[in-house]
């Protein structure tokens, strides 16, 4: 690994981290496509590097959410039993899945992300907290969070936990297979299944991502699948980029960033899908 490559990896990761950070997304979703499509890194090393950067981004951005009482840590540890189980399944599966399938799944996940970026998230109608019975209260998961715009604490309930757990298992599986944080799957699970307020689901999802990723990253690391000269610059670059991105967010119009984001996601999805099918298609034609 020469110096030029390390600098290139670092710079690209800063850009990916900044782009992700501007929309509160980890850079993982960009790292694997960039490394495999443009950097000619093989997909397993790319996944290994990406999963470390996912941990780095999640850990580095967790503190403000925790201090702002947006993260529901009790709910997080409960859901993490499902996400880490999913990650473990992913670790067991990853060797058996052909590379072209990985590219295909990745392309689909990128398209789902793009679709989610376009669809505006709305706060689910908060259920009136009248009858505090049922599963959620026996686990004491319901909580409150301080809403700055309203200037008071908002109480919320955690609903439909079993569906949430199933979706979290899938999110963990995809996270391990593709080396992404899969916040893109966790956040809708929390929005639509658990019916959490947006700020709470974003913060809690971000908090859970590092532990989910550690379950697969640990296995890849001891197995020797994580190439330090690739993963090191990518992890550091992502953290730097995420910090820059969060700063930039203040000064750039949110809609413009969203549009840029969607364009990048769709472009990468197209390339990943071509990489998945391309060779076989061309062979079929010839």
């Amino acid at each position: 690994m020469n110096t030029g490559t390390e600098l290139w990896l670092f710079t690209v990761s800063v850009a990916a981290g900044a782009l992700g950070g501007m929309l509160g997304m980890a850079s993982g979703i960009f790292i694997v496509p960039i490394l495999t499509l443009w950097g000619h890194v093989d997909i397993r090393s790319a996944i290994g590097a990406s999963i470390v950067s996912v941990i780095a981004c999640s850990c580095s951005s967790a503190a403000p959410f925790l201090k702002g009482r947006l993260t529901n840590v009790r709910l997080a540890i409960l859901l993490e039993t499902a996400t880490t189980a999913g990650a473990l399944s992913g670790v067991l599966l990853v060797g058996t899945i052909p590379v072209s399938y990985l590219f295909f799944i990745f392309g689909v996940i990128l398209l789902i992300s793009a679709q989610q970026m376009l669809a505006k998230r709305r706060d689910p109608a908060l259920a009136p907290i009248l009858s505090l019975t049922g599963r959620s209260t026996t686990w004491r998961l319901d909580s409150t969070y301080p809403d700055r715009t309203l200037g008071r604490d908002i109480a919320y309930r955690v609903q439909r936990l079993p569906i949430g757990m199933v979706l979290m298992y899938v999110a963990g599986l995809i996270s391990a297979l593709l080396g992404i944080g899969s916040g893109v799957l966790k956040v809708p699970a929390m929005d639509t299944a658990l019916r959490l307020p947006i700020k709470v689901s974003s913060a809690t999802s971000n908090f859970m991502i590092s532990v989910t990723a550690a379950a697969s990253a640990g296995a890849y690391f001891v197995r020797g699948d994580i190439v330090a000269p690739v993963a090191g610059p990518v992890a550091l670059g992502s953290v730097v980029g995420a910090i820059l991105g969060a700063r930039l967010l203040m000064s750039i119009s949110n809609e413009r960033v969203r549009l840029l984001f969607v364009v990048v996601l769709v472009a990468l999805a197209a390339q990943m899908l071509v990489a998945a099918f391309g060779k076989d298609w061309f062979r079929g034609i010839a």
Partner: peptide
């Protein structure tokens, strides 16, 4: 719940070592 999460992560490490 925290213990289960920890054990799952350790199981991943064990799998990684075995698969090496």
């Amino acid at each position: 719940a925290a213990a289960v999460v920890l054990l799952t992560i350790f199981a991943g490490l064990a799998i990684g070592i075995l698969a090496k």
